[in-house]
């Protein structure tokens, strides 16, 4: 589904991604871990073209996303969930969810509203459909952001530290929703510091350090039998090994 080849990205003279190779298959749930500043968020943002890579290949379902014009329609098939939720502050929860499908004429307004209520209903958020973002809790905001992505029927969803801006008691409601979506077969890439969640949730984990991927294995292997020395020291620092 997604194939990344020798992807490089610099910010000025600073090399953030020094040649990333990664393949993600349909239905996989890939966690990306690594120390701060190792480039994990940048990698995720490159996949969604929020950052433009300097070189390399970014193949999605056979299309090179870096080929310019062909990526316009593809972008909506790659969902993104942000650390800071990024709900549209001037729109209600419902409006947030239906804005894009209606604007892009994926569905009619009536159908989008119906679908949004349905999705909100599934996770018990019907009551806040007409609230504004500043009126709801962080956990609710992040779940609305996920629903906003879901209504676009993406092939893959990228999660950029989806729980790090949340109060601890709200983390559960977000991870539960993620588990629910995973069960339905969604492909996901997750950047997170929640090691327990990554460990129990992801089918595969990628360890990034210093702009490259240093280890890529199953979740079990990474946490129980790490091979790379940097991974070992990283895990010991966060008491996960």
């Amino acid at each position: 589904m997604l194939k990344i080849n020798n992807l490089k990205k610099n910010f000025g003279s600073k090399k953030v991604l020094k040649g990333i190779n990664l393949e993600v298959k349909k239905g996989e749930i890939v966690g990306i871990i690594g120390p701060s500043g190792c480039g994990k968020s940048t990698l995720l943002r490159c996949i969604n073209l929020l950052e433009t890579p300097d070189s390399g290949k970014l193949m999605f379902e056979g299309n090179n996303l870096l080929d310019g014009d062909s990526n316009k329609d593809i972008r909506r098939r790659i969902g993104m969930v942000f650390q800071q939720f990024n709900l549209f502050d001037h729109k209600t929860v419902l409006e947030n969810i239906i804005l894009s499908p209606v604007l892009l004429k994926i569905m009619s307004r009536e159908k989008a509203i119906k679908k949004a209520h349905e999705l909100l209903g599934e996770i018990g958020l019907e009551d806040i459909a007409n609230n504004y973002p500043h009126e709801i809790s962080g956990g609710q905001k992040q779940r609305v952001a996920i629903v906003r992505t879901l209504i676009m029927k993406p092939d893959i969803i990228l999660f950029d530290e989806p729980t790090s801006a949340l109060d601890p008691e709200m983390i559960g409601e977000v991870t539960n929703l993620m588990r629910k979506i995973a069960k339905e077969g969604m492909t996901m890439i997750i950047v997170s510091h929640e090691m327990n969640f990554i460990k129990s949730f992801c089918t595969r984990v990628v360890f990034m350090d210093d702009g490259i991927i240093k280890e890529d294995a199953s979740s079990k292997e990474i946490f129980l039998n790490p091979k790379n020395e940097d991974l070992k020291s990283f895990l010991s620092k966060i008491n996960a090994y």
Partner: peptide
Amino acid sequence: NKGQWEAGYSLGLN
């Protein structure tokens, strides 16, 4: 906030 732009772009809007 830049995040408002990014959220819009990530939903496929131009």
